[in-house]
């Protein structure tokens, strides 16, 4: 629980390069995520936002560069050190990623059972407290298949915070939710952030929601940081690209059409039957 400002960044990424095959997903990227704030990582689909989470949590290895979480160099940690660091992190996956064979209660209890020797009654209380926090204490006995998408995500959120992490990462938390579930998730992100003093990172492309939620945001495109700032600063950014993204326009610097040959040439050209 560290909310002092002016302290070193909670997460600091320097000169990150990450390649997949010949394609550079990240090309010399620097990111500083301050402690105790909500930082949004935005960008069009396919810009590697989720990949960035993979790199920060040590599931992927950078081609070069330095990634530090809580001062620790993620890429050079040994397995047990990495696991120790992960105990301080909570991740909410896009679809929740609940263990399908376990009930909601057991899903939330899972990290406790794996990592602690707490008594059954203690686990019971802790799990119910977390489920209460996400409003699903009544759904404790349901199996993941019986939960709606929004409920599954909330159970997964309870599971992500059950070990009282310092960092929490949300991977596209707003995708595919109805308006009610959506506002429930937004409310939860905000209240958890406040009450637990978490360093929160949200990966999403939902500009409108993040505008009211994030303290700071990074805008990614084609492997680079295109813009950084508070939502308000982004709105005022002059770049046409930023304006297209924030305004949600179909055409602009990012073309509507995927790069291709000339249309008439492809339709009428000699090799049209290939």
């Amino acid at each position: 629980m560290n909310t002092e400002s002016g302290e070193a960044s909670a997460i600091s990424i320097r000169n990150l390069v990450f390649e997949r095959g010949d394609r550079a997903i990240f090309d010399h990227v620097d990111v500083e995520i301050p402690r105790g704030r909500i930082t949004a990582i935005m960008g069009p689909s396919g810009t590697g936002k989720t990949t960035l989470l993979g790199l920060v949590t040590g599931r992927l290895h950078p081609s070069s560069g330095d990634i530090r979480v809580g001062g620790l160099p993620v890429q050079s940690l040994r397995t047990h050190e990495l696991y120790a660091l992960r105990m301080r992190m909570g991740v909410l996956f896009q679809n929740g990623a609940l263990l399908t064979e376990l009930s909601a209660f057991e899903n939330v209890a899972f990290p406790l059972r794996e990592h602690t020797d707490l008594s059954e009654s203690m686990i019971h209380s802790l799990v119910l407290m977390k489920l209460q926090a996400v409003g699903l204490r009544g759904a404790a006995d349901l199996m993941p298949a019986e939960l709606s998408g929004g409920m599954a995500r909330r159970v997964a959120l309870a599971r992500a915070i059950v070990m009282d992490p310092e960092f929490i990462f949300y991977d596209e938390p707003f995708t595919g939710l109805d308006p009610i579930s959506m506002s429930a998730i937004v409310r939860l992100i905000r209240s958890l952030h406040k009450t637990l003093g978490l360093t929160t990172v949200i990966v999403s492309h939902d500009v409108d929601i993040l505008e009211h939620l994030a303290d700071d945001s990074y805008l990614f495109s084609e492997g680079k940081v295109v813009a950084r700032g508070t939502p308000d600063e982004l709105r005022k950014n002059r770049s046409r690209w930023v304006q297209q993204f924030i305004g949600g326009m179909a055409d602009g610097p990012v073309p509507f059409h995927y790069p291709s040959r000339e249309y008439d040439e492809e339709l009428l050209g000699e090799d049209q039957w290939r």
């Binding site: 599931r59 992960r86 105990m87 992190m89 991740v91 990623a97 263990l99 990290p111 794996e114």
Partner: peptide, 21 residues
Amino acid sequence: LMRATEQLSAMEMMAVDPVRR
């Protein structure tokens, strides 16, 4: 399917080795 639905990744993120568990 556990791999496809990110259950194994989730486990890794909870600092639980999926090969062990």
